[in-house]
Design a protein around this nucleic acid. Structure first.
Length: 273
DNA sequence: CATTGGACCTGACCGC
DNA sequence: TGCGGTCAGGTCCAAT
């Protein structure tokens, strides 16, 4: 599922539901989910810890504990549900039970998702290579230009590179490039500062709108109580092949850029040298 | 170094 | 119904 707006939606759910709760029991149902420490150490380390804060960095969900953090990444198909510990749905990989209230269930059909229990330096190391948070102050065309300078790689896979900017994925990359009227194949280093400023603004606008509508429930994303996001109703190009561009009416086209399905308006997003 | 292609998994969907 | 191919909100690693 998840890009920045979907993870942020879940973060807000968790901030309201489990901050202040203490872990009483952990059930790892799929050992491949746990990347650090060992499965045994993971459960032992969580027991008795209280959740101080629910945070997010890019697409990573950070549940800060008394010392260190439980870090979750949902990858393509991960979901977080808050529900009774004894009532898991299919494909549940991890259940974290608290002293009161519902348990946290990590559910993931494709099993790409990851979990870590790390001390503070480990958290820092895990996140060290991430680029800037696009919704924090200071994110603009100049920041993009500094990261992209001289690169010949196409702008779309550049945006998907989490070292350039944290949290943008396939949906919001397509939507932001449409908003900024930039063809996804354009070499990143060839974009003027003016166009990079437009793009930075488009990224911010698109991500904020995604959060406002609780994310995009296209394939798998739902909130922690199972509620669907509504941003799929506001998408302009993503998965709208053949439908009219909301700006000019031309039919949206699908192409492949950097091995990812990509959606553009061929009139609004012309290739240019 | 920068960039690309395949791997990692499972399930849904489409055409034959 | 069954089979094969394609596709899916992501990231990592090996090969150019």
């Amino acid at each position: 599922m998840p890009e920045l707006p979907e993870v942020e939606t879940i973060r807000r759910d968790l901030a309201a539901a489990i901050v202040g709760r203490r872990v009483v029991r952990t059930e790892v149902r799929d050992a491949s989910l746990v990347h650090a420490p060992s499965v045994a150490g993971f459960g032992r380390g969580l027991r008795g810890k209280a959740v101080q804060r629910a945070d997010r960095r890019g697409k990573y969900l950070l549940l800060h504990l008394d010392d260190g953090a439980l870090v979750l990444h949902l990858m393509m198909s991960g979901r977080i549900f808050l529900r009774p510990a004894d009532d898991p749905v299919g494909h549940t990989r991890l259940v974290v039970e608290f002293d009161e209230g519902p348990a946290l269930h990590f559910v993931d059909v494709r099993r790409f998702g990851r979990a870590w229990l790390l001390p503070p330096p480990g958290v820092d190391a895990l996140l060290a290579d991430l680029g800037p948070e696009p919704l924090e102050p200071g994110f603009d065309g100049r920041v993009l230009q500094a990261a992209v300078g001289g690169r010949r790689r196409a702008i779309k896979p550049t945006l998907l590179d989490q070292r350039i900017v944290a949290g943008v994925g396939n949906i919001y990359a397509d939507e932001a490039l449409w908003l900024a009227r930039i063809h996804p194949d354009t070499p990143a280093g060839s974009l003027s500062l003016r166009r990079l400023n437009n793009l930075a603004r488009a990224i911010v606008t698109t991500l904020r709108a995604g959060i406002e509508y609780d994310g995009t429930s296209f394939l798998t994303h739902v909130g922690s109580r199972g509620e669907r996001g509504r941003y799929q109703e506001r998408l302009n190009v993503f998965q709208r092949t053949g439908e009219p561009c909301p700006r000019c009416g031309r039919a949206i086209e699908r192409l492949v850029v950097g091995q990812r399905g990509t959606h553009i308006c061929p009139r609004c997003q012309r290739r240019r040298g």
